[in-house]
Simulated scan of single mutants.
Amino acid sequence: MASLDEDPFVVHRNLLFTVAYQLLGSAGDAEDVLQESWLRWSSVDRSEIRDPRAYLVRVVTRQSLNHLRTVSRRREDYVGEWLPEPLLTSPDVADDVELAESLSMAMLTVLETLGPAERVVFVLHEVFDVPYDEIAETVGKTPAAVRQIAHRAKGHVSARRPRVRVVRSEHEDVVERLVTALNTGDLAGLMDVLAPDVVAVADGGGKARGAATRPIVGADKLARYLVGGMAKAGAGLRAAATWVNGQPAIRMELDGHLLGVASITVADGRVTQVYSIANPDKLTRLDHVAALSR
């Protein structure tokens, strides 16, 4: 009898979590999906399964689809802007450029604009290289229909995703400049690192004081908002560099207590977008590194 460590579900758990998280944008919902999938897996006749990895991906995907329909209704009542739940990641996740890009807040936010079927098809094919015929079996459509969905989803994502792929060193440099400007209250330094048309979106969920409820557009407005917020909070508020969703990001702490994280997109050495998550319900997984794979 095989040990638990040899069970295909355990062997592929990091992959299954990554699939569910990318489909749902929520680590909590992804864990729920994995629990449900484990129950289904534990009751199946393993002797009839030729490819456990593919089978488990199908199970997790179907459970994620069920959750997608539920969470879409739940998010309609969300207070303010909704952003994906951030994950603390190790720097080596960035070594897989395509995985890191697919995990980024910018990409996950774009995926939120897709319908459930489009999101599933795009993520499975573009990120995890699942063949169209396997996806068709998973979503209950013909391979031809899946190809059409994939073409439509890819065009939708391409029109909205960041157009410039930034090297890791440049992204880290911009984060360091932003951290320094924030901690010193350097308005000019902030203006220098922010693109003129920068857009900042904050997710406080109605539970975080000071979180902007609407997007802030423009370097001048955002720089003054940030400097004012840092000054109001006092010397105990500090920014630090961290890694979130496979990219360099910023961690905000007040007297050592985590207040939020900010993920950024970069172009030409400047910040073009800021995704700030301060809802305390979404910060619970930032004390340990997420195990991700594809």
Rank of each mutant, 00 (worst) to 15 (best):
V179E: 00
R177I: 02
E172K: 02
Y225E: 07
A212I: 03
G210Q: 03
V166Q: 00
H171K: 02
R168Q: 05
V227S: 11
V217E: 12
Y225R: 12
Y225A: 14
D220Q: 15
P196M: 04
D197W: 11
Y225G: 15
T180V: 04
V175P: 00
G228N: 15
L182F: 06
V179Y: 08
V174G: 03
H171F: 09
A223R: 06
A202P: 03
D192Q: 01
V201D: 03
V199A: 13
G229D: 07
A212T: 01
R214T: 11
A208Q: 07
A195G: 14
M230T: 13
M230P: 13
Y225I: 12
D197H: 11
E176R: 02
L178M: 12
G210E: 11
P215T: 10
I216T: 06
A223N: 14
D173V: 00
K207C: 08
G204C: 06
T184S: 14
A188L: 14
E170L: 10
P215F: 09
G185S: 05
D186F: 00
V167F: 11
V175H: 00
K221F: 15
V174S: 04
R177W: 03
K221A: 15
L178F: 13
G204N: 13
D186L: 01
A188C: 11
R177N: 03
G205D: 05
L178Q: 09
D192E: 11
V217Y: 07
V166N: 03
G185V: 00
R165T: 11
V167G: 05
P215I: 04
A219Y: 07
P196Y: 00
E170N: 12
H171R: 13
R214L: 12
L222C: 09
A181L: 02
G189A: 06
E170M: 09
R177H: 01
V201F: 01
D173R: 07
D197A: 13
A219N: 11
A200M: 06
V166H: 06
K207V: 05
A211W: 07
D220P: 14
G189C: 09
G204M: 04
D220K: 15
H171P: 05
G228D: 10
E176N: 11
G189L: 01
A188S: 02
I216L: 12
V167K: 07
I216K: 08
